[in-house]
Design a protein around this nucleic acid. Structure first.
Length: 134
DNA sequence: GCCAACGTTGGC
DNA sequence: GCCAACGTTGGC
């Protein structure tokens, strides 16, 4: 089981929207690194849901419901999408500020390469985020 | 709203 | 194949 972090601007698709939909096709990724991460996702993997720009916090947890398939929104090029389902909202969002101040989390891709929209997360990082959310 | 960081594009 | 120019992202 692997851990991931997906990023979304709450203005365009918040975690609440996601929960209301019960399932989302994660389409529109047009970055090679992010695409490779999508490809590496396995059904049942866990992903943190991060709100960029507004909030700047991890707000929820999602599960991979369907592994990578060709992105239907891509007219050309070799792009993929996955399907995600919401698992649960965190009791308390874990903000980017907090993440930066924690030693275990300061090496996260989120901090090092903030622009990557689909990123791997280590188990240690994941566990720490969950602990902080309580 | 600004701007730094990064990725992509295109001229050479 | 290099690198300058450009566009986009996202933190501030």
């Amino acid at each position: 089981m692997n851990y991931w972090l997906v990023k979304q601007e709450p203005d365009s698709y918040s975690f609440d929207d996601f929960v209301a939909d019960k399932r989302a096709a994660w389409t529109g990724v047009r970055n090679y690194q992010a695409r490779n991460n999508l490809r590496a996702m396995k059904k049942g993997d866990t992903a943190l849901y991060y709100h960029s720009n507004i909030g700047k916090a991890v707000v929820g947890i999602a599960k991979v419901a369907k592994e990578a398939y060709p992105d239907p929104t891509a007219k050309e090029g070799d792009w993929v999408a996955v399907d995600l389902v919401p698992e649960k909202a965190l009791k308390r969002p874990v903000t980017l500020d907090e993440i930066k101040t924690h030693k275990t989390l300061s090496e996260m891709v989120l901090v090092k390469n903030s622009r990557l929209s689909v990123q791997p997360v280590t188990k240690a990082e994941f566990d720490q985020i969950i602990a902080l959310a309580k």
